[in-house]
Amino acid sequence: MKKRNKFFTKKNGFICAFLAPGILLFLVIYAYPLVNIFATSFCRWNYKNFQAPEFLGWGHLFDNYIKMFTLDANFKMALINTVKWVVLTMVIQIPFTLLVALVLAKKPRGWKFTRNMFIIPNIISTAAIGLIFLNIYNPSRGIITEICNKINPGSNVSVLADGNYAFWGVTFAFILFGGSSCLLLLTQIFSIDPGIYEAAKVDGASAWQIDRKIILPLMRPMIGTVSIMAANYGLLLYNEIALITGGGPDNATFSLSYYIYRTALGSTKLNFARGNTAGVIQFILGILLVGCINKAFRTDQGD
């Protein structure tokens, strides 16, 4: 009896009242949809029975997964592209951004201006970036075709008409824009105590040696953090595809996100169950990715 009274104190009332909106938001926007995609990935649910999903039965539990991996060419394409984009962010964006950060950290004239300009592509809407690149790649009004024709007259390269080129077209619409990551790396470099490398300087080490032997190892945790952010961007890539290629040509630039959208929401033969199945795969890949990168950089994030 006493214990019960103790529970209904003013303090507990306050705690509950203050936590309630946050918990509600979490339940509605994250928990319920997450449970929903897991549950419906084991159901038959498409445009024929869109009112209510139908459980596949224990014998056919993984049918959606099996069909998606074996029969669905679009999914295969989306998965391969997504893996490529994740890898490309790691091998292009991160080294490039790191190089820029190391250069700007020397504070050459105009470093702050360069840093700020580098952030601009990250803070303007990706819808605008997508539209800009859509025009840049356009054969009649863009510049890529024009430049290619100057180098190799008559080549008439059309970036978005060829699956291979289109993939790189999408890639270069986002991969070099590492301004926010660069900012984080710079913050980390500036927080290193100069005393640590002053001694090396006195001993005659070159700036490049100091960067490589002293600064880079100290930046490991932050490199891990920006790698997670960049790889995650590659994993979730959607806007650039929706705006530049629309998944084409011939579905060559599908990403997982775009596949989910097209399968569950944006086509005539909607297959909600399969879209949600792909959602589960994307969720699991995300966790694996963070786990792997964390392990590689041994960063202990969060608190």
Partner: peptide, 13 residues
């Protein structure tokens, strides 16, 4: 919530 991509859960939403 960091690990829940908004597009993968967009259909239920």
């Amino acid at each position: 919530t960091l690990f829940i991509p908004s597009i993968s859960i967009s259909f239920p939403i």
